[in-house]
Amino acid sequence: MPVITIASPKGGSGKSTTSVILGTEMAHAGAEVTLLDCDPNRSITLWASRSALPPRMAVLSHVSESEIVRTIKQQDADGRIVIVDLEGVASRLVSRAISQADLVLTPMRATTLDATIGVRALALIAEEEEALGRSIRHAVVFTMTRAIKSKQHTAIEASLKGQGVDVIVPPLMERAAFSALFEFGGDLRSIPAQGRMDGATENAAAFAQEVYKRLVEASQ
């Protein structure tokens, strides 16, 4: 089953939030999902400890550099979508997790700093494609975006698209409901209402659907 690696060497770019939103939405849509928590900050483990896991979801914590390839392999054969959440550093764990991915998502905030550092993940993917002799599907998702796109956002998006980078639309917007997932656990349907829940749910589902589309294309 497909492996989605969420990778960016930039901390605070929204990797764990993206992982939880994607995992819970895909599980809600009927898939069996395993989240691998490879971040020493244990954000996913913290989310999982807040309440019972949504149906069809499992979490594996404390996956280290030496175990990552083997763990992904084990889960890969298990008939599940595997989502790998990584720490925001440039580590060997990141490069190994990318090597086992069917799709790599690089979340980035629409800032020059996030884009500059996030692009290092894209350079690494290109290097690994060459080293392994296989293409690795990848895409960028903007996170914590506002309803009105900033000039910086527009410019970064245009620059990435100009370089042939796949940018997922819709981005994940800045929403109270998304950050509240780590306060209450569960998914967007189980947490107490935070702001415009229908908007958050629609955003999350549309994002997950776009990722699913890419997974299907990648497996053709």
Binding site: V89, A90, V94, L124, E130, A131
Partner: peptide, 28 residues
């Protein structure tokens, strides 16, 4: 959804490690 075969042999991991090191993705 179908997973594509991925090489996880020690040789492949070595290649990936050295590709990562070129971009500063090192053992941490």
């Amino acid at each position: 959804l179908k997973s594509r075969a991925k090489d996880s042999s020690p040789q492949a991991v070595e290649k990936v490690d050295s590709a990562g090191e070129k971009h500063g993705f090192v053992d941490r």
